[in-house]
Design a protein around this nucleic acid. Sequence first.
RNA 1: CGGGGAGUGGCGCAGCCCGGUAGCGCAUCUGCUUUGGGAGCAGAGGGUCGCAGGUUCGAAUCCUGUCUCCCCGACCA
Length: 439
Amino acid sequence: MRLSRYFLPVTKEPPADAQIVSHKLMLRAGLVRQTSAGIYAWLPMGHRVLRKIEQIVREEQDRAGAIEMLMPTIQSADYWRDTGRYDAYGPEMLRITDRQDRDLLYGPTNEDMLTAIFRNASNSYRDLPRILYHIQWKFRDEIRPRFGVMRGREFLMKDAYSFDLDEAGARVSYNRMFAAYLRTFARMGLRAIPMQADTGPIGGDLSHEFIILAPSGESEVFFHKSWEEARSAEDYAVDADDTEALQVFVDAMTADYAATDEKRDEAAEAALGDDLRRSRGIEVGHIFYFGDKYSKPLDFKLPGPDGEMVTPVGGSYGIGVSRLVGAIIEASHDDDGIVWPEPVAPFKVGLINMRVDDDACAAAADDLYAKLEAAGVEVLYDDRDERGGAKFATMDLIGLPWQLVIGPRGIKNGVVELKNRATGDREELSAEAALEKLA
RNA sequence: CGGGGAGUGGCGCAGCCCGGUAGCGCAUCUGCUUUGGGAGCAGAGGGUCGCAGGUUCGAAUCCUGUCUCCCCGACCA
């Protein structure tokens, strides 16, 4: 993409409304624009990041055996009346009336609808277990939206729903999602810590929040120092179809203490002593088991293997996709701007032509741009008629992992400069070598 | 929802108290010079001051109402 033809409104100063660093940077780097309280338009650059994150989530859901579908944003109130949640949900749900005076709502979640759909379309225990998911916009009329996309009213969420014959089966589905979540966040360059969370009226231990450590986090969290170690997706490699191995994995990942403020265990913390860490955290995912909470009121029963009717049990599993954009920036930035982890970066390379009016420079940059594109490298080519300093500042702000600089100085010596945004390391090398390194 | 604050060119702000017909920085456009970390000089364009009513000869400024946004708190992907 040529920057001269792109839509990337970057600014030196953020609007006064923005408080936290990710919100400021998202506005300055031209990722989003606010259109109402807690509602955002995703500009081209932000949209690319959102899609990258969404795709990683999708791949890991698929790997875990979940099946993608898509449900609507607008739901009939009847789905919610059938589960008894229409009156229970409260003002956070945006209620709408259509021209026939039918009650509709903008979905804040989809348990009610999906359970009804799944119930009507499944016939026996052979249709279980299943995990279905979709990635769709939600609306929750938050009392006070804030922190940009971190607590918006409209947000993109991946929500999955499992259906199993019994609790033992549900635990397997739960474990699949548990492992998938750790891999998902690790692939985005995030260290997410699974923390015991409230299970509500169901009880049990099958509820975890996945927390990213960041000073701007909304909740205070406490954990064993072992979670400070960096981990990659490979550290979370486990065969989702190997039930036993999966349980061993989950047990290992929940062995070390980690709790949110609400679930603190003073005795456990005292036992940790100096190994206890405390931080602020951002919740990027939440998984929980809810038993027959929805299948029962919907009278969802299936003939079991022995001919007896069985009420399936389920869980739901959410990831805040749009929130992750903010969370990643909170976890990865410096004074100059965003530092995108490569897997979620909107472009891999920022190609800078230092002197647009220099024929040799322009020719070399055009050539390298064409070759990068041909090699399938996602490259943003700054071909604007700007001074070098302005281009460097823009590139640092938008945080692409690699900056490839072509200027008269290097051209003279037959080299280009490659800079790593995260480390600041620069090296001079031939255009061919740079191409090979980036392709 | 309770408490606080703010709406003035794209962004950040001043002007309001002490009414007299809108200003500054950044950004934008043109020209010249410049060109490896947000250039300099000269010139130019762009707002009628959230909206509605009222007071007044005259309202961005005073009064009333209303809408929107932000911050703190209780709640949450």
